[in-house]
Simulated assay, not measured.
Amino acid sequence: MAKLSFAQAIKNLFSAHNKEDTEFFDDLADALIEGDIGAKNAMELVDQLEKECKEGKIHGNEEILKHMKVLLSEYVKSVEFVPEKGKINIWMMLGVNGVGKTTSCAKVANLLIKNGFEQVVLSASDTFRAAAIEQLCYHGEKIGVRVVNHQHGSDPSSVVFDAAESVKAHGGGLVIADTAGRLHNKENLVHELEKIDRICKQKADDGCYKKILVIDSTTGQNALRQAEVFNEAIGVDAIIMTKYDSTAKGGVAISIGKDLGIPVFYVCTGETYSDISLFNCDDYLNTFLGL
C-alpha cells in the first residue's frame, strides 16, 4: 500500500482534529517526520509553529499551512548555475549508485544545449562500474554530445583532465563529469573524489567549478545521510532531485537545506531527456503542503 503524501496526511490531520491543541501539534510533528523532514527538524518546526500560532492567533487549516510555508521557506533554497562561455567550466556530478546520476548528466547536457550552450562534453569518470562508461556513451550518442572516456578501471581523474583539455582546445565550454558512488567503500570513494576534485580545481576557470549531488527523492533520510557524506568529503554546491514525480513525501529538500545549507538546482520528473527543470521553491512548498 502506497504511503500518503504529506499534503494528504495534513488534510487528514485537520479532518481528525476540531481544534489546534497540543495533540494536534504532536500529530503534525509525526506527519512531518513521515514526510522525511527528520525528527529533530520536525520537533523544532512544530514548536515554533505552535508558539507563533498562539501568539498571532492563527487558526484554521489554510492559515496554519500558510504560516508553516513561511517557516519552511527559510530552509528550502534554489540555485541556478550558468556555464560561462569562453571559459573552462566543470560540473562534477556526485551521488551513490542507482540514484540516476548518469542519466542526470545527459539530461543536464541536453537542457543546456537546447538553451543555446553548445560546447558541452561528458566525462565518463565512473571507471569502476562496468556499465557506467557504456551507459554515458549511449546517452552522448543519443543527444549528440561528445563523451571523453578511458578504459574500464582507469584513473577517473585522468578522464576529467582530458575532457577539460578538450574543452580548452575548443575555446571553452562545460565538462559534466560522471563519478563513482560506491558508498559501501567510503574511504576509497572519498580518496578518489578528492583526487578528481584537485584536478577540477586546477583545470576550471575561477568560479566555474561546481559540485552537484544527485539524490533520489523517494529515499528520504537516506538521501540526507548521502548529502552529509559527500559534503563532508569535498563539499556540495547544489543537489539534483530525481524521481521527483513519484515521491509520496519529498521533505528531504527541507532537511538538506536546513541541516547542510545546500540549495536545489534541478528536479527530474521522468525517464526522457526533457524531464528536467529548474527547482522552484514556491511550487515545491505548495505541493508539499497541499496549498
Rank of each mutant, 00 (worst) to 15 (best):
N110M: 07
N18T: 11
D27Q: 15
G220Y: 07
F14K: 08
F14E: 11
H67P: 03
K107G: 09
G261I: 02
I90F: 05
C53I: 05
S15D: 14
T247D: 13
Q202P: 00
A9G: 15
V175P: 07
A16S: 14
R129G: 10
A132M: 12
G257M: 05
T287H: 04
I58K: 02
N115D: 11
T219H: 08
F81Q: 07
K210D: 12
Q221I: 04
A253F: 08
Q151V: 11
I196Y: 00
E80I: 12
A223D: 12
S154F: 13
E74C: 07
G235Q: 00
T179K: 08
I254R: 02
I254K: 08
R146I: 02
E20I: 03
K69S: 05
K168V: 09
C268Y: 04
D21G: 12
D26T: 14
L260H: 02
L213M: 06
Q202W: 06
A227P: 04
I37Q: 10
G173M: 03
N115W: 00
V99I: 07
Y284H: 11
H170Y: 11
G144R: 01
K69W: 07
I196Q: 01
L260K: 09
V108H: 01
C200Q: 03
A248D: 15
V121D: 04
L174N: 08
K3P: 09
V148R: 02
E20N: 08
M92Y: 02
M93N: 10
D178R: 06
G35I: 07
I90W: 02
Q221R: 00
G220P: 13
F265Q: 12
A109V: 05
L174W: 09
Q48M: 03
A253V: 12
L278F: 08
V96R: 11
I256A: 09
K258S: 08
I33M: 14
G261Y: 02
I64Q: 11
Y244A: 04
E34I: 08
G116F: 08
F161G: 12
V121N: 06
A227I: 06
I10L: 15
I196F: 01
A248C: 09
V99W: 10
M43G: 13
V175G: 14
H150L: 03
G270E: 11
E74Y: 04
K54W: 01
K211W: 15
A131L: 03
E84A: 10
I143D: 09
E80K: 15
F265D: 10
A7D: 13
L260C: 03
K66D: 14
